[in-house]
Design a protein around this nucleic acid. Structure first.
Ligand code: FES
Ligand code: FES
Lengths: 158, 158
DNA sequence: CCATCTGTAACAAGATAGGTTACATGTCTT
DNA sequence: AAGACATGTAACCTATCTTGTTACAGATGG
């Protein structure tokens, strides 16, 4: 597989949980994300450990939000999924002996650090509620009907 | 392997070619980069196609610079190696139907685009000569002795 | 007890950079 | 012309990482 999509996926599911579900099972979430329930548990385990969601086992269990979307930033989720590497390029060795390579990696590292700082600053200042507000602008009715069957089934049982 | 190191490697070798060699074979370069001669040819083929280096076959052949290091930017080399993806994170699907996911990817994409623009701007404004100047500050004698045997052998024959 | 969940280990699949082997082609020396 | 030397390139393997899948243990409530 190519690029790590865990951050995007977790933002997606958190907004759906806030808007459409009180509580959702890994199975339900896996259908939204077009993936497997084990992948959902694996990824959301980090969010649970950081206190952004709660999980309950057994009959009637599942996942639910532990705080409001305005209290969670993109940076929070990025850290909760384990701070995966942001960049796909980098030096070939960690501690090069060659002074030329040291100079190359230093200059390249400066540019990467600047870009990383900018990216993480954006992550820090954007809450998931901000993204949900963008969703509201795209769909004023507040209802996304692509997986309407799942939503209906849940809101009937919830 | 983890992160694409072709940009770093090409910058490294171009500076060595400017400072220590008139002409270098793929074999010699592969020893500098601790890799294989075929990998060197494969990667430098892009630089040749863009006119930054020349290659000559046959006896006495090899690679040489086609222009001064002050005439080559990091962006030039990044493009010459085929513009590999810069980021290791991204959305899970290209054209999501779900409006929530569209909002997530749009917001995430904005942050990534900003960081990418900054990174490419740095690449555009830094020449390889700038990096070589940093090398001079680290090693005023202008000689890196780690692979001194290779350098000596080349400057004797060259 | 049993159905329903999460938690987790173990392994397979898919993608990509990099390493390796093999061979064709071009070029200089003798 | 012969042979050494060097690039050009295809083909295949390896390493690593995210994701997908199967299997099973443990918790929970009817
Ligand atoms: S995932 Fe958004 S409506 Fe189904
Ligand atoms: S690679 Fe820099 S001295 Fe050998």
């Amino acid at each position: 597989m190519r690029r790590d999509s865990r951050l995007s996926r977790m933002l997606h599911v958190l907004i759906h949980m806030d808007r459409h579900y009180k509580r959702a099972t890994s199975e339900t979430i896996s259908k939204m994300l077009c993936t497997n329930a084990v992948v959902v548990r694996r990824t959301m385990a980090g969010l649970r450990d950081f206190g952004y969601v709660r999980s309950e086992q057994g009959h009637g269990g599942g996942w639910e939000l532990a705080r409001g979307l305005d209290q969670i930033t993109l940076l929070d989720i990025y850290e909760a999924i384990g701070k995966p590497p942001l960049f796909a390029i980098g030096p070939s060795v960690d501690q090069p002996e060659c002074l030329v390579e040291q100079a190359v990696d230093a200059k390249l590292g400066d540019a990467l650090k600047e870009a990383e700082a900018l990216l993480l600053e954006r992550f820090r200042t954007v809450t998931i509620a901000d993204i949900a507000a963008d969703f509201d602008r795209r769909m004023p009715e507040g209802q996304c009907n692509i997986h309407g069957n799942i939503h209906a089934e849940q809101s009937a049982s919830g």
